[in-house]
């Protein structure tokens, strides 16, 4: 296959309010290839979930896409709505959300929910759909799938429920999966199981995965490439080893240094002063400059650094150079 599965180009999402227009997603561009996991990381309010929702067409009004394009295997999908989008969702794009209990219907058995999705999107008979539903449950590692298919969501544990949600996302064989904090509500041991499952499915089926999370450890372990978001913009984008190991953007570097790490011991954690700006008060120039110790006059004024105008890796005029000591 040629070309990326998902291609987002200069995407802008805006929310009109009485006090002006907010931009939770501001000129974001990235690609995801088949069989690749792109990790989207950032703190709360950075716009990472909003980007995911824009891709799958689940923006809550009044938020809307005002510029840019989203291409799924080359076809524009950002203009679609209603029925056309509904056909696409589930069939070509699967979704996994944070809380498996709210993304499953408590009144239907998991078998009903799976066969409904399969029948809706694929031209198969009811018997075949049931067979596929059992196969999907087996694939995500639910023991005794044939017996469990008649169970209701409340009869499963948290980890098993999230497996059901993954089966549901995969049962119509989509090309792209958007996973929004899929392991945040789970315990460490179950989280490790779900990450291993996602990686295996991604590799075996060649699905493109957009993994949205705030957990750097999860990203480091699961993702092939990372996009770091800050105040609605991409701060850094690159292969996971590069970004985690040799962060170029001062925000990414600060984020890494402020994560308590295995080797750190009782040493003081590095702090990034202040907090992320509110969307109605994003400063001119680089949005990170008020918290950045490398900031100079150029950072405080427009035009702000963007990935495209800098080195393509970090949106920063004065990126951290590899092996340079980050001042504590």
């Amino acid at each position: 296959m040629t070309g990326p599965v998902l291609s987002v180009r200069d995407l802008v999402v805006e929310i009109p309010t009485r006090r002006g227009v907010l931009r939770p997603v501001d000129r974001v561009s990235y690609d995801i290839a088949a069989g690749e996991i792109l990790g989207v990381v950032g703190e709360s309010g950075a716009g990472k979930s909003m980007t995911g929702n824009a891709v799958i067409g689940l923006l809550d009004r009044p938020a809307r896409i005002t510029a840019g394009e989203i291409l799924l295997t080359g076809e524009p999908i950002h203009g679609l709505n209603g029925e056309a989008l509904r056909r696409l969702r589930g069939r070509r794009m699967g979704m996994i959300f944070q809380d498996p209990l709210t993304s499953l219907n408590p009144l239907l058995t998991v078998g009903d929910q799976l066969t409904e999705t399969i029948l809706e999107h694929l031209p198969v008979s009811a018997a075949e759909a049931r067979k596929r539903a059992i196969a999907a449950l087996e694939e995500v590692g639910i023991p005794a799938a044939r017996q469990r298919i008649g169970s209701y969501p409340h009869e499963f544990s948290g980890g098993m429920r999230q497996r059901v949600v993954i089966a549901l996302a995969l049962c119509a064989e989509p090309e792209l999966i958007v996973a929004d904090e899929p392991t945040t509500a789970l315990d460490v041991s179950v989280q490790a199981q779900i990450i291993a499952l996602l990686k295996r499915l991604c590799r075996e089926r060649g699905v493109a995965v957009m993994l949205v999370t705030h957990d750097m450890g999860v990203i480091a372990e699961a993702a092939d490439r990372v996009a770091v978001m800050y105040a609605g913009r991409l701060a850094e984008l690159g292969p996971v080893r590069e970004v985690v190991g040799n962060a170029r953007h001062p925000y990414t570097a600060g984020l890494m240094a402020s994560t308590p790490s295995a080797s750190g011991g009782h040493r003081r954690l590095r702090q990034i002063p202040g907090a992320m700006p509110r969307l109605d008060a994003v400063p001119d120039g680089c949005p990170f400059h008020p918290r950045c110790e490398r900031a100079e006059a150029r950072c405080r004024q427009a035009p702000e650094p963007m990935l495209q105008t800098c080195d393509g890796r970090a949106a920063c005029w004065f990126p951290v150079v590899a092996d340079e000591e980050v001042p504590a």
Binding site: Q193, G217, V240, V244
Partner: peptide
């Protein structure tokens, strides 16, 4: 099981 920052593409038996 705990995710680690230095464990790129780690393949472990969960």
């Amino acid at each position: 099981a705990a995710p680690r920052m230095d464990a790129f593409g780690r393949e472990v038996e969960p």
